[in-house]
């Protein structure tokens, strides 16, 4: 296959994994592997912003890359951090002990890396993290390669956002279901108690709630016990106090 068809093939494959449920870490690890196999780079890594705004390491194409990125996070200096903070592409040759990130450059040099490209993972105004590409060559990365890396980064950003939205939707839906179920059990318990004692539904609810409060129990748990027939009879014999 030509390089173009390799790239297209990779993009299609990544897009395919976005259908239904997918694992973001798997997807991003796949992304770093593809960067290494399709671009003139030696290692790739992805960092993502945590809810508190700091960056965390998510995927690396190699152990050397993982250690270097951890070093970058510990020292709080390096290309990934700058790309994330500025939202701009970074493209630099590395010289040990000097330049923008003297400590990072020294550590990178020890691992054999001589130049770096860092791209923000960004959708419109939101920067989600950054993609780090390191090369053992000092010569700058070709513009054609950067365009491919940009396409990978955009797809990764899109997949992360989509995954977050889907997780949030899942959480809200479960919360709604749980709230409805709890309401239903309470309505059933009102029916049970009203029939046992010969009182109306409102009075049954008042007694149920008063009992839950005094016993320091959750209303839903008390209601479930009433429905299951395991509730202490004192729960309904005592008229509710206001």
């Amino acid at each position: 296959m030509t390089r173009e068809s390799d790239v297209v093939h990779s993009l299609v494959e990544m897009a395919d994994t976005l259908v239904d449920d997918y694992d973001v870490v798997d997807l991003l690890t796949g992304l770093t592997d593809r960067c290494v196999s399709l671009l003139a780079v030696s290692a790739a890594g992805v960092m993502l912003a945590t809810p508190t705004g700091s960056l965390g390491l998510v995927a690396s194409s190699s152990e050397a890359m993982r250690l270097l990125e951890l070093f970058e996070l510990q020292q709080q200096e390096g290309p990934c951090l700058d790309a994330f903070r500025s939202g701009e592409r970074i493209h630099e040759s590395l010289t040990a002990g000097s330049g923008r990130w003297p400590r990072f450059s020294t550590a990178a040099g020890r691992a054999g890396f001589q130049s770096v490209v860092a791209l923000p993972l960004r959708l419109r105004d939101v920067t989600l993290g950054a993609l780090n590409l390191l090369s053992t060559s000092r010569s700058p990365m070709a513009e054609a390669d950067i365009i491919v890396a940009r396409a990978f980064a955009d797809l990764a950003a899109l997949s992360i956002l989509q995954h977050r939205a889907s997780t949030e939707a899942q959480r809200l839906n479960e919360q709604l279901s749980a709230a409805l179920t709890s309401r239903i059990v309470i309505e059933q318990a009102k029916g049970v108690i009203s029939e046992r004692v010969g009182i109306d539904l409102a009075e049954a609810f008042a007694r149920l709630r008063a009992y839950a409060r005094n016993a320091n129990l959750r209303l839903t748990d008390v209601a479930q016990a009433a429905v299951d027939g395991t509730l202490d009879p004192r729960a309904w014999t005592a008229p509710a106090r206001n």
Partner: peptide, 9 residues
Amino acid sequence: HNAAGIVSV
């Protein structure tokens, strides 16, 4: 559900 509670008793 109120009715179900009543019928169950």
